[in-house]
């Protein structure tokens, strides 16, 4: 029965992906992509990876979807493309099928029994006082990956801001919609935002022992901030705002500071002080959650406008 469900889900995923790549128009392709992300989230739940499912739905489908839809509206209607060579599509299809077939063969030839690090994680997890193994891997065993991921996120915002025409990036990003928010959006923002903020904070708190964590929580908080902006409940913040910039930097640089302190307290970069691991891990999680929320929302809002126009 569950295998039948999985097979139907895989089929829908495939149809969703074909809908994304085979649709000529931009807006239907982006909407198909959002649906594809949600189906992918369901697939992650079926693979018992609830942390990944939350991340995929929040970032891969939700926030990416907003960014892409915003882009579709900002782009002019594409000029009619010159007719592609008649052999292009069959040739591309042949290459795609060949790559998919090679990967499928590799999947079928995966070694048995499957190599795994689960036993190592299970052995080392009690020392961290965390109950969620994925949070343990993200924040302790592979903390360097997570630190660099925060830096990549920060650099992505720097890249977006570098496209502003104001070199100092002090203005406010243009509002997502030039018209005032319709009454239902304002109502939705007022009703949903408090609940959403609560859910975001719960995901952060529960992430230590249950599915959830800094990234999922930050994405939900960013979404609530964007909802308030779209509902005209708060104004888009100016990019030059000092506390905004401090919040943006708190995560990556706080994490880096803890990493350097690790040499003094635990004798190794990114080590946590023995005895106080959980307190320090939670402090790092809070800092990176705030930075993620602010950075994601600012990435969606786009480059700050010129000083003159803001």
């Amino acid at each position: 029965m569950s295998l039948l469900f999985d097979a139907v889900l895989c089929l829908l995923l495939l149809l969703g992906a074909l809908g994304v790549v085979a649709t000529g128009a931009a807006r239907p392709a982006v909407i198909a992509f959002i649906g594809y992300g949600l189906l992918l989230g369901l697939a992650w739940v079926r693979l018992d990876a609830v942390d990944v499912a939350l991340t995929e739905i929040a970032i891969g489908s939700g926030i990416s979807g907003v960014v892409l839809l915003h882009c579709v509206r900002a782009l002019p209607a594409p000029p009619r493309a010159p007719a592609a060579h008649p052999m292009l599509r069959p040739l591309a299809a042949a290459i795609a099928v060949a790559i998919a077939a090679a990967l499928a063969l590799a999947v079928l030839a995966l070694p048995e029994p499957a190599p795994t690090r689960a036993a190592d994680v299970a052995a080392a997890l009690p020392a961290t006082d965390l109950g969620n193994p994925v949070t343990g891997v993200l924040l302790v065993f592979r903390a360097l990956d997570t630190l660099l991921e925060k830096v990549v996120l920060f650099l992505s915002l720097v890249g977006v801001w570098a496209l502003s025409r104001d070199p100092a990036c002090r203005g406010r990003p243009a509002p997502l919609s030039p018209e005032p928010a319709p009454a239902p959006s304002a109502f939705l923002a007022r009703v949903l935002a408090p609940i959403g903020v609560l859910v975001g904070l719960y995901l952060l708190w529960a992430g230590a022992d249950h599915p959830g964590g800094a990234f999922q929580s930050g994405a939900v908080l960013a979404a609530m901030g964007l909802l308030l902006v779209m509902g005209d409940q708060i104004r888009v913040p100016a990019a030059g705002n000092r506390s905004l910039r401090l919040l943006m930097l708190a995560g990556p640089f706080g994490f880096l500071a803890v990493g350097f302190a690790g040499w003094a307290t635990a004798g190794v970069f990114l080590g946590y002080p023995p005895g106080a691991e959980k307190a320090v891990i939670i402090a790092v999680e809070v800092a990176i959650t705030l930075s993620i929320a602010v950075t994601l929302a600012l990435i969606v809002l786009g480059p700050p406008a010129d000083e003159g126009r803001s």
């Binding site: 895989c10 790549v21 493309a81």
Partner: peptide
């Protein structure tokens, strides 16, 4: 099953990359 679906999705993505008319 999901591994094979992943392989097929990679194929779809490659097809999209090769045939897309615009950057989006």
């Amino acid at each position: 099953l999901f591994g094979l679906a992943g392989a097929a999705l990679v194929g779809c993505g490659v097809y999209g990359l090769l045939t897309a008319s615009g950057a989006l």
